[in-house]
Amino acid sequence: MSHLGELLSAHLDGELSPAERRRVAEHLEDCDRCREELDELASARSAVRSLPMVEVPASVLGLPDEVVVPLPRRKSFWAGAAAAAAAVFIVVASILAPDGTALTPQDLSDPFGARVSLDPGFTPTKVAQVRVATGDFAE
C-alpha cells in the first residue's frame, strides 16, 4: 500500500480533487503512519499560519518619489509649439516696441497688442477704428 505523501498537505489546504479526497479519506482510516504524518504537517502548517502579520511601517506605503509625484503629462506637439511661439513673440515684441511705449501683460494678451508692439504707427486709436469696423460698437 503506497502512502499518501504530498496528498496530505494538499488535503490540509483543501486542494484535492474529489477522487483524491476519497482516496485520502479511505487511506487514513487504515493507516496510522499517514495519520501521524498528517498531524505533524498540520502542526507545521499551523505554526507558520500563527506567525503574526507584521504591520507595515507608515514609511513603506509613503512610497518613493517616483510614485508619489505624478509625472507631468506630456504636452502635445501643438501645445509646445504654441508656447514656444508665444515666448518668441514676447522677446521680439520687447525688442521692437517703440520708445516710450510701455508694454503691459494686457497689451500682450490683446489680439491687437502684437500690432501695437510691432508697428509704431499702429496706435490705439487705429485699434478702436478697427474694432468699430468689425462691428464691435460697444467700443
Binding site: G5, E6, S9, A10, E40, L41, S43, A44, A47
Partner: peptide
Amino acid sequence: RSRIHRGRRMLR
C-alpha cells in the same frame, strides 16, 4: 504541491 509538502516536513 510537492514544494509545500516538503517545506512543511522540513519545518516540522
